[in-house]
């Protein structure tokens, strides 16, 4: 499979402290790539580099290259990049507006005003995020009235509504109960037919259950990257082995 995102020699500093060290990685299209590692290892930082959300933090310095679709992300219009590379956050963060307006927010931002088209997009996105049946009768209700798990699926629908090609997920289930977590995992597995998913997770079982490829980060370095099965059953690096067998982290 051809890679959709490639990072070469990527380094990132927050002020004086280096958070990413010489990351080389190629993320293949239409698959799920899991980023694992202990807290503070740089996996979330790496994820946020991919849609340039790190640009918002003062004092960030980045060297090396990241290419999306064959072109450096730093040369692309950041708003168009973020439209193509969507994001789902750790804590469900629907806007304090109606369910409909939440999903329609992105398309409206990108210039779609036609009511009928918006209706279609909202329905399709909610269906894709496996939440349509639960909310179709209360689209006009405030999204903050939904349960945590529903809110997170709504956030996924909101991200899908702008038709991204890549979906970045930053520990999307860490604030959810096991049943909601399962739903999100099933959803991710389904979505990889259409989208490329990069997911940061603390939960190694989750990485093992849903991902095709796994990248293990430690202290800002990408220690090992490969097929999930291989990483978990036959890691090449001793540190990976220690981590996936639960010896630390």
């Amino acid at each position: 499979m051809k890679p959709i995102i490639t990072a070469k020699d990527l380094c990132l500093w927050y002020g004086q402290s280096q958070a990413l060290k010489n990351i080389d990685i190629a993320i293949p299209e239409q698959s799920i790539t899991a980023l694992i590692g202990p807290s503070g290892c740089g996996k979330s930082t790496f994820l946020k580099t991919l849609n340039r959300m790190n640009d918002l933090i003062p004092g960030v310095k980045i060297t090396g290259t990241v290419e999306y679709n064959g072109q450096s992300i730093f040369d692309q219009d950041v708003n168009l990049l973020r439209k193509e590379v969507g994001m789902v956050f750790q804590k469900p963060n629907p806007f304090p507006m109606s369910i409909y307006d939440n999903v329609a927010y992105g398309p409206r931002t990108h210039g779609i005003r036609d009511r009928k088209r918006l209706d279609e997009i909202v329905e399709r996105s909610l269906r894709d995020a496996a939440i349509w049946d639960e909310v179709k009768d209360r689209l006009k209700k405030n999204a903050l009235g939904l349960s945590g798990g529903q809110q997170q699926r709504l956030c996924i629908a909101r991200a899908l509504a702008v038709q991204p090609r890549v979906l970045l997920m930053d520990e999307p289930t860490s604030a959810l109960d096991p049943i909601s977590t399962l739903k999100i995992e099933e959803l991710a597995a389904k979505l990889k037919d259409k989208y490329t998913i990069v997911i940061v997770t603390h939960n190694m079982q989750q990485a093992l259950r849903i991902s095709d490829h796994t990248a293990f980060f430690l202290l800002g370095e990408l220690v090992e990257y490969g097929d999930t099965d291989q990483i978990f059953t036959n890691p090449a690096d001793q540190r990976t082995n220690d981590y996936v067998t639960g010896r630390f982290g």
Partner: peptide, 23 residues
């Protein structure tokens, strides 16, 4: 988080202030 969500959808900072922060 609201503002981050808006930016991550490709909205500009100004759009974010007017359509998310002020409401």
């Amino acid at each position: 988080e609201y503002e981050d969500a808006s930016l991550a959808l490709g909205a500009t900072p100004e759009e974010t202030y007017f359509r998310v922060s002020i409401p």
